[in-house]
């Protein structure tokens, strides 16, 4: 195997191939690779951003939830207060009414009693008068006394 013109032919072929690669092979492939790298980098950045946004949204949601809970408990608290207030008011009102009714009843009873006492006093007085009358009559006339006594018995 001798050194011959193949060597030169190979060198020329190499020059042609290198030129072709420089012109038509390397630039488009490299451009595609670089573009994809950029796309991937952008995508990763977007993912990071989305994750951050998600965290923010979650925090915000938590905040809202907390606020809502606070408001709900405040409302419940208020309702409870109002309820107890209403009950208190009702109780107070009922008590007052009861007092009033009792007072009235007591007054009525007192009135009845004083009326009865008055009546009783009147009757006792008339009885005493009647008894005195009869005692007086017997001393005067037995016969007359007896029918008075009978009258009294009948009257009693």
């Amino acid at each position: 195997m001798d050194i011959n013109a193949t060597l030169l032919g190979q060198s020329i072929a190499m020059a042609v191939f290198v030129w072709f690669t420089l012109k038509f092979v390397w630039p488009p492939i490299n451009a595609a690779i670089e573009e994809r790298q950029k796309k991937i980098a952008d995508g990763l950045a977007a993912t990071d951003r989305a994750e951050k946004d998600l965290h923010l949204a979650q925090d915000k949601a938590k905040e809202y939830l907390r606020e809502a809970k606070e408001q709900a408990s405040a409302i419940i608290e208020q309702a409870r207060k109002r309820e107890s207030k209403m009950i208190d008011e009702a109780v107070a009102k009922a008590n007052a009414e009861r007092e009033q009714i009792l007072e009235q009843a007591r007054a009525e009873v007192e009135a009845d009693r004083s009326r009865l006492r008055e009546e009783l006093r009147k009757q006792v007085a008339s009885l005493a008068v009647a008894g005195a009358e009869r005692i007086l009559q017997r001393e005067i006339d037995d016969a007359a006394h007896s029918d008075i006594l009978e009258k009294l018995v009948q009257e009693l």
Binding site: A13, P27, P28, I29, A32
Partner: peptide, 22 residues
Amino acid sequence: SIILGTIFIISFAWVGRRATAG
């Protein structure tokens, strides 16, 4: 060697022509 070099540049240039960044 020329055949193989041609296979190389043609196949690679073919890829380069329709290279997509997707």
